[in-house]
Design a protein around this nucleic acid. Structure first.
Length: 626
DNA sequence: GTAGGGTTAG
């Protein structure tokens, strides 16, 4: 419905007694308030009837409104019909293209503007910088200096942002340090720069020094932690944000859910879920697709497929990302058939799979040992969807074949593929060699890795474990000295467990925990129970060249065992214990978890780097392959 | 009459 003023402005045939400037003002208001394309077309028609379309302000506003409604081509047409556009119109057309991610066009309009001898102002440059890569940024920077705009707050903020995006932290820092004044936005631009480059200490220092903090800078800091392997810090900061009464938005929620997923913090994830539903953040008519997908992912990673299913079934208009998360969820839990079923359902409803879909389906096949199905899907990817398999897809196939004991076949596949193998793929193949005791192939691969400078701590330790299992101590010593010489360090194993909404982290031999004494006393009891049932520690897994007794002790304090001991003393009898480990679970710990699930009568659900293990009554859902 | 910082599955 049109308002009375609109009716009068749009329908009056001739200007009334009111002055022309009042009419222009009225049109300006109408354009600014127009919310639909139709509406804007009506106003545009009225302007044409009155010959007002060349009025500089109305023409400008019309162009801006068309582009903000997504009709860039209308804006472009009007722009090209404007004789001698002024700096406002040039800035606006540049901004319109920047907003549509048409960076090259924006740059080309800028070049044309200069060719027409129109001098840019601060608005022009900040619009232009939005999408500049490093090379044009340096050029625009020099223009800013030339036109005396380099100390403008908006221009310098945009420059900091542009250098940061281009990866030139030094220039970004230099500009930032030289800024005569800084706004919240410029501080956030620098904060983003630090975070993007993993400089979390610098970021935190800057963040703490910021007097006023809005939701954007909280998001940058929280997401920074979430994306750089510090999900616990992200959650702590999120709680602090709530305490400061800053209202989170959808972006906050996405970062926090990702953190919960990484930590396997189910209680915390559930809390965020109910927060989402009660606060209306990220909720349209129902939970929106992105938040929904993040919830599905979180629930899968926290071990609750039931909750993931509930969210997934309630989502409308599921896209490929949503399907992928759930397929992957089933996969890492070892439910291959369910993952395949989901995949076929997705194809049936007409969603086109992406390359990540195939990673998810093949991962699921690998974890469930579905060799035939895996090959079918791998072929389908090439034949029906005409996708070239990437190294990740080959990695899945190697995992699949390796698990099935077809290590040589896996090796042949690697040698026949056209893409360059990466260290993850080599690690997968080595893992298969280790599981199936193919030492000669393992050595061959390891030598290749060492001579090509591809050896990582993971591959070195696998090889050392293989030698140790074969009682080849010379081999073990060789690997050990290689690691020492080349500075390859073992990534420390870390296990975490969520109790009472807090995540507790343990490293091997950790004594920092408040209840450390109780934990070690439980550990002692566990060892008594285990030994009474005939458990012998798998000491050949220990890398170090130390005495047998010390090897036993070093195994006993593995991080996952500490987490289990803490779980046993701090949760109610009969409840499931959920542990998350950053590396793959070690063979000895896996055996201990199996036995302890029987001894304690508890379900133990452990997520390692690779997949979920559900330990129950003495056995594991992975059927001893992982 | 105009502009700058945060967004996704392995």
């Amino acid at each position: 419905m049109m308002s009375p003023i609109e009716v009068s402005v749009l329908t009056k045939a001739a200007p009334s007694a009111s002055s022309a400037s009042v009419q222009v003002d009225n049109f300006a208001v109408l354009i600014d308030n127009s919310k639909s394309i139709n509406h804007l077309h009506q106003i545009h028609a009225a302007l044409l009837r009155r010959g007002l379309h060349h009025h500089p302000i109305l023409n400008f506003k019309l162009q801006r409104s068309y582009s903000s409604l997504g009709l860039l081509h209308h804006t472009v047409t009007l722009f090209h019909r404007t004789p001698a556009p002024n700096v406002f119109l040039w800035s606006s057309i540049i901004n319109a293209h920047s907003h549509s991610a048409l960076w090259d066009c924006a740059l080309s309009y800028y070049a044309q503007m200069l060719a027409h001898h129109v001098q840019p102002n601060a608005f022009t440059l900040s619009s232009l910088l939005k999408g500049c890569t490093l090379q044009p940024t340096t050029v625009v920077h020099s223009h800013a200096v030339k036109f005396g705009l380099s100390s403008d707050l908006y221009v310098s903020t945009s420059l900091v942002d542009a250098y940061a995006r281009g990866g030139d932290v030094v220039s970004a820092q230099k500009l930032f340090d030289a800024m005569p004044e800084r706004s919240l936005v410029s501080l956030t631009a620098m904060l983003t720069c630090y975070v993007k480059h993993g400089m979390l200490r610098e970021a935190r220092l800057l963040f703490e020094g910021m007097g006023v903090k809005d939701v954007v800078c909280w998001n940058v800091m929280i997401d920074g932690y979430a994306q750089h392997g510090c999900p616990n810090e992200a959650l702590v900061l999120f709680r602090e944000m709530l305490g400061k009464k800053v209202r989170p938005n959808e972006i906050t929620v996405l970062a926090v859910l990702s953190s919960c997923g990484q930590l396997g913090a189910l209680e915390c994830g559930r809390w965020v879920h109910s927060y989402v539903e009660n606060s209306g953040v990220g909720v349209g008519v129902r939970v929106n697709l992105r938040v929904g997908t993040a919830l599905v992912d979180m629930y899968c990673k926290c071990g609750s497929l039931e909750d993931a299913r509930k969210v997934f079934d309630g989502m409308v208009g599921k896209d490929v990302v949503a399907w992928n998360s759930f397929i992957m969820g089933y996969g890492i839990h070892g439910f291959g058939d369910e993952a395949l079923q989901l995949f076929h359902e997705m194809l049936r409803v007409g969603v086109r799979p992406s390359d990540i879909t195939f990673v998810a389906v093949l991962t699921a096949c690998a974890h469930a040992g579905l060799v035939g199905k895996g090959w079918e899907v791998f072929d389908l990817m090439k034949s029906r969807y005409e996708m070239e398999p990437k190294v990740e897809h080959y990695g899945c196939m190697v995992n699949l074949l390796g698990r099935a004991g077809r290590v040589r076949e896996a090796y042949d596949l690697v040698r026949s593929m056209e893409v360059e193998p990466d260290s993850i793929l080599w690690g997968t193949l080595l893992w298969a060699c280790r599981i199936h005791n193919d030492i000669s192939l393992g050595e061959e691969i390891a030598e290749f890795l060492v001579s090509n400078d591809l050896a990582t701590s993971g591959t070195c330790i696998l090889l050392s474990n293989m030698y140790a299992a074969a009682r080849n101590w010379v081999g073990v010593a060789k690997v050990r000295s290689f690691m020492k010489e080349s500075g390859v360090e073992k990534e420390p194993g870390c296990s975490s467990i969520e109790v009472n909404n807090r995540v507790h982290e343990f490293l091997a031999g950790d004594i920092r925990h408040r209840r450390s004494k109780d934990i070690y006393s439980m550990l002692g009891k566990m060892n008594g129970w285990l030994k009474a049932r005939g458990y012998t520690p798998k000491i050949d897994l220990v890398l170090h060249d130390i005495g047998e007794q010390q090897k036993e002790q070093s195994l006993e304090v593995h991080s996952e065992k500490l987490a289990l001991a803490f779980g046993l003393i701090s949760t109610s009898p009969g409840t499931a214990i959920k542990i998350v480990k950053n590396l793959r679970v070690c063979l000895d710990c896996h055996a201990v978890m199996k036995m302890m699930s029987k001894i304690s009568g508890r379900k133990i659900i452990m997520r390692d780097r690779n997949r979920f293990h559900h330990f129950e009554n003495g056995s594991c859902s992975c059927r001893d392959y992982w």
